[in-house]
Design a protein around this nucleic acid. Structure first.
Lengths: 167, 167
DNA sequence: GAAAAGTAGTTGTAGAGTACATCTATCAAG
DNA sequence: CTTGATAGATGTACTCTACAACTACTTTTC
């Protein structure tokens, strides 16, 4: 609904004639749409996750997923990556440990550091939630063709990487 | 960092030779990347908003923006759109009203309904926050060309519209 | 090599956002 | 007029979060 106005302006077939005049407007409209749609997605993500996998909140899921992706990292890394305060991460990690999903390993070279790892149980719970998420995403994207999916994926990756860099 | 592995697989230049064999894999990888990147964005959005415009949380911002976009709507509409409980919206709206950002208008035809509208002050605060957001988005997207932006915007719109439909 | 500065993480405290259950008020059928 | 649906508010309780202050350890500096 909300998106239709700007979306039509952000159509794939961009008028290439007199590009100089149109570019600024096209850019403006497209950025506005990107902003609006990304924000709407973000706003829904928490609730959507709660419905998809009630046993693992969006927060817990992302932290566990990051641990799996990274093959173990420190609490500080999580805080940096997700723009969270370290106290928040500390509590989240404590809860995940209490639940038996993660394990701490001390670094003998630096006693301040605790490397966080998934436990077998954590891996299993994560896999289950990831599966539900994956199904939901595949369902939503079922009528996209592979080339579109690849481009969309590349755009998102590029966007996030650029957001991480200059901040 | 985390994204680099899958991102390379989701490159724009898709191998078109022996497409039948590659399609499933390409699709799988692309969907996984889309899921991961969208989720990462969602996880950062709240904190990013708090830094960009501390005077207006991500929640408040999205609700006000929706009111502006829609030109006034009911609390229930907000709840539906953002997958929120009506009690949550009720409290959020009450806070926004207390802050002088929104106004309620009773519908003479149906006394249960309250149409929510931005006040002049609400419009102003929203505009200010939107401006900061817009700047940040433009900065992150500054080296994208208009065609890419348009495609990205169209993809996001399509994704969100499809998410809204079948759920 | 001791003092100063920096880093990793925890804990106290407090506030925002949220859901679920329950309530009121209103409307719509039958 | 009763029954059922809808819009919204309130009671309650929990999670997520930040900021400030703390401990413990490491690195730098003079």
């Amino acid at each position: 609904m909300t998106g239709s106005t700007s979306a039509s302006g952000a159509d794939t077939g961009v008028r290439e004639t007199d590009a100089a005049a149109g570019d600024a407007g096209v850019r403006e409209a497209a950025v506005a749409t990107i902003q609006r749609e990304l924000t709407a997605f973000a706003r829904r993500a928490r609730a959507a996750a709660a419905r998809m996998h009630p046993e693992l909140s969006l927060v817990s899921f992302t932290l566990l997923a990051h641990l799996e992706d990274s093959g173990g990292c420190r609490a500080t890394d999580l805080a940096t990556y997700y723009l969270l305060d370290k106290s928040t991460v500390s509590r989240q990690v404590a809860a995940l440990e209490r639940a038996g999903h993660v394990e701490r390993r001390s670094d003998p070279a630096d006693h301040r550091i605790q490397l966080l790892h998934l436990t077998a149980q954590g891996e299993q719970v994560l896999a289950q939630a990831a599966d539900r998420r994956s199904q939901a995403f595949h369902a939503r994207l079922s009528d996209w063709d592979p080339a579109e999916l690849s481009r969309f994926a590349a755009y998102l990756t590029r966007y996030n990487d650029e957001a991480a860099d200059p901040a």
